[in-house]
């Protein structure tokens, strides 16, 4: 299930806690996924069509799912711009196929 996935090691903030958890953020040609860093189990997968918008900063990366999910998904990473460009590239490919 992880064939063709680009992985980024990021840190997730646990809800209600001040603890950061290592996590793998996977990007494929048509989805973004949360993957367990140790077991490589896919915890959650979002098709790119459910991502309303995203934002990269030097220290973070955030996904906004609009109507599909109430809260943002935000992680700490210094690779936000790379994740952003990879997603943008895959979306460009999807758009060109139409």
């Amino acid at each position: 299930r992880t064939y063709g996935v680009s992985f980024f090691l990021v840190k997730e903030k646990m809800k209600g806690k001040n603890k950061l958890v290592p996590r793998l953020l996977g990007v494929t040609k048509d989805s973004v996924m949360r993957v367990d860093e140790k077991t490589k189990e896919v915890l959650q997968e979002w098709p790119l069509t459910t991502v309303k918008r995203w934002a990269a900063s030097p220290k973070s990366f955030t996904l906004d799912f609009g109507e599909y999910q109430e809260s943002y998904y935000s992680v700490q990473t210094t690779e936000g711009e790379q994740i952003s460009q990879l997603i943008a590239g895959y979306i460009d490919i999807i758009l060109k196929k139409k």
Partner: peptide, 16 residues
């Protein structure tokens, strides 16, 4: 990035 607007850091997804 082609065909995409950047406003306050957010990139809008055209296939959403």
């Amino acid at each position: 990035v082609m065909g995409r607007s950047r406003e306050s850091g957010w990139v809008e997804n055209e296939i959403y």
